[in-house]
Structures are given as C-alpha cells and as structure tokens.
C-alpha cells in the first residue's frame, strides 16, 4: 500500500520531557565547570585536547554534510561528543592525534552506526578506543599495585603509601564532615577521601573532579536530561562486588573492599553518567536497562577491580554496548509476548 500526503497536527502542545537539543545543551553546560577547573589548574594541554576533540567532531559534521547530507539539525550534540572525548583523553595525549581520534571515532559512529539514535557504541567511547590503540603508552595503568594492597591491606592505604598528596584543606574538611553531618550516621571518613572527591590524582580530566561530576549528574537527572536506571544499577552492582570480593584474591578477605576508593579513582562516576547513560546505546525497556546496568557493573569490576584504573571503565562501556543488541532482541520478544498476553 502506497501512502502519500500525511496530515499531521502539531499537538500535543504540552511536553513532559526536554528536547534532545536541550538535553545536549544542559549536559554541555554542566561540564563547563570542569573546563574552568582545568584552566585554574593550568592543565592547558588537557584544554587543548578538548578543543581539538570538539574540532574533530565538527570536522565530521562538515564531512557528513558534504558526503551524506546527514546533518544533526541545529542541536549541539557534536560539541558534547567532542567535549566528552577530550575529557576522557590523558592530558599528555598528542593534540594532533586527539583531533584525529575524535574525527575518526565520530565519523565511524555517524557513518557506520548511523548517528543520533542508531549508535551501537557511544561515539566518544569509540574515539577514545581509537586513541588508545593509536598511542597506548600515555594511558595510565592502575594507581596502586596488587603488591601494595597486599602489604597494606586496603587499596586506599596502598595509594597513601605511594606518595599521595593531600589537598590543602583535606584535614579540616574531613574533620568538619565527621563532626557534623556524618556523626549522625556514626561514620568517619579518614583523611584523603576529600582529596579524592575534589581532585583525584589522574592524568585523565574526566576522572579528576568527582565532586563536580556527581553534582552535575544530580542536576541532569533532576532536569530529566539523563537516564538514571543504568547508572544506578551499574554503580550498585559494582559497589557490591567491590565491597564483597575485591580483596579476596589479594588477601583472602571478604566484605572489606573500599567502595569510595573504587568509585573515585576509576572514572566510573563520569563514565556511567555521561557515557553509559546515552539512550542510543541502551535497550528501550526498563528490564533491558536493568540487565545492561548489571552487565556493566560486572564489567566495571572485571576491568577496574578494587579501583585505581582510569581507563578500564571506558572499555567496560564498550563491552557493555556490544551486548546491548542481544538484550534488545530478547526484550523485543518478551515485550511482544507480554502484549499478546494482555
């Protein structure tokens, strides 16, 4: 049957969700304070990498316009993709290669996967994957060695052993938190966690400012600009695994993993909120999203272990993205079966 001449009205005149353009704008604005902090910290090479990554995505946009006429009309998704790519690259990564990786990753995603809504893997994750293959030496390894953990007994202790510099106000802020807010819950945080929260020691900018990432994520979830199911499930699964079995292979102890250390030193907060939560790369039903979250949480644990690996989280996302088509196939069958049963 050939159908021509659709008659479509602009109703409804009320919306309960922001547009994709607004979502991209909000996410970009929420990441701007990170750029400001990078400038304050005088990490100019990181800022240059970010700008060149954005330029790489812009170049893809121009190429797609010339080649395929596939244009993301008006919204600034390419800026966000470039920004995320730049933030995930180590500060010492060669700028020209940053541009190339960003261009190649976004071009591959747009050209092969199909771009907005059709991406199998997150374009920034693909770009960083290409960057890693191009120059793996600059990507940092684990912050702490297994031997150090075995010696000290916990991951954070091992980090402090390896000349970890505390922030200037770490002691006073930790003392203030312990005596006020945390005293109600009978919890005490030792010195050093405030530093990890405020400025974690990593060459990758995305891993550094955990406090900003957490606050911006809460704002984005509140504004309905971010999906919360997958981040919440994956963080919960990773935290549980980390707490229960992370130290078992090293010193045969259970239920003694350091969740905060794992979350604050692996870039997992940034990865789950800004990369993993991209709806293009996720299943569409709640059950499918929960399954993906569980798989991602397990992969985080496999790749990052007790914490301290800045790039493991990103490769976990790429692996999690690769199983999503299978989950989607199953969820479609389940959804159709449940519809017929109604």
């Amino acid at each position: 049957m050939k159908i021509k001449g659709w008659k479509v009205s602009p109703s409804p005149f009320i919306q309960t969700r922001p547009t994709i353009a607004t979502m991209a704008q909000l996410q970009t604005v929420c990441l701007l304070p990170v750029l400001v902090l990078l400038l304050i910290d005088r990490d100019i090479s990181a800022v240059v990498n970010i700008l060149l990554s954005i330029a790489g995505c812009l170049a893809t946009e121009v190429c797609m316009r010339l080649v395929d006429k596939k244009v993301s009309r008006g919204h600034i998704n390419f800026v966000l993709t470039g920004l995320l790519t730049g933030l995930l690259l180590p500060s010492s990564y060669p700028p020209v290669m940053a541009f190339g990786a960003s261009f190649a990753g976004s071009f591959f995603s747009r050209g092969i996967f199909g771009g907005t809504g059709a991406n199998w893997m997150h374009p920034s994750a693909v770009s960083v994957g290409i960057a890693y293959i191009g120059y793996p030496a600059v990507f940092p390894g684990f912050l702490v060695s297994p031997d150090s953990i075995r010696t000290v007994g916990d991951a954070f202790g091992a980090l402090r052993l390896d000349s970890f510099l505390l922030a200037q106000n770490d002691q006073s802020v930790a003392a203030a938190l312990n005596s006020s807010f945390l005293s109600f819950f009978d919890i005490r945080i030792p010195e050093g966690y405030v530093t990890l929260f405020w400025r974690s020691p990593s060459v990758i900018p995305a891993v550094r400012y955990n406090f900003l990432i957490l606050i911006s994520s809460i704002i984005l979830i509140g504004a309905k600009a971010l999906d919360w199911i997958v981040p919440l499930v994956s963080l919960t699964v990773y935290s549980l695994l980390l707490f229960v079995i992370s130290l078992f292979p090293l010193n045969d102890t259970l239920f003694s993993g350091d969740i905060l250390f794992g979350l604050l030193t692996s870039g997992i907060l940034f990865t789950v909120f800004y990369i993993l939560s991209d709806p293009s790369t996720l299943p569409r039903t709640g059950t499918g999203k929960i399954c993906t979250g569980i798989i991602a949480g397990i992969l985080f644990f496999i790749m990052c272990g007790p914490g301290g690996s800045s790039s493991g989280a990103l490769f976990s996302v790429l692996l999690a993205n690769s199983v999503v088509p299978v989950i989607e196939k199953i969820e479609k069958k389940i959804y159709l079966a449940s519809r017929k049963a109604l």
């Binding site: 009320i14 547009t19 293009s280």
Partner: peptide
C-alpha cells in the same frame, strides 16, 4: 487556550534517539 512563548514547546523534529520513553508510557502497551 492562549499560550505564551515560555510555555509553548519547541516543534523542531529530530531523529529518534532510541530512549524508549514512548514504549514505557503507552497505555495500550504498543
């Protein structure tokens, strides 16, 4: 109903982003 510019939603149509929100709210389960 007379709408002002603040309450009037944006009408530019974009490609589907595969979010699944439509699937989750449909009262007919389609």
């Amino acid at each position: 109903h007379i709408m002002d510019h603040d309450t009037c939603p944006e009408y530019r149509i974009h490609d589907c982003i595969h979010c699944g929100l439509c699937l989750g709210v449909c009262p007919s389960h389609i």
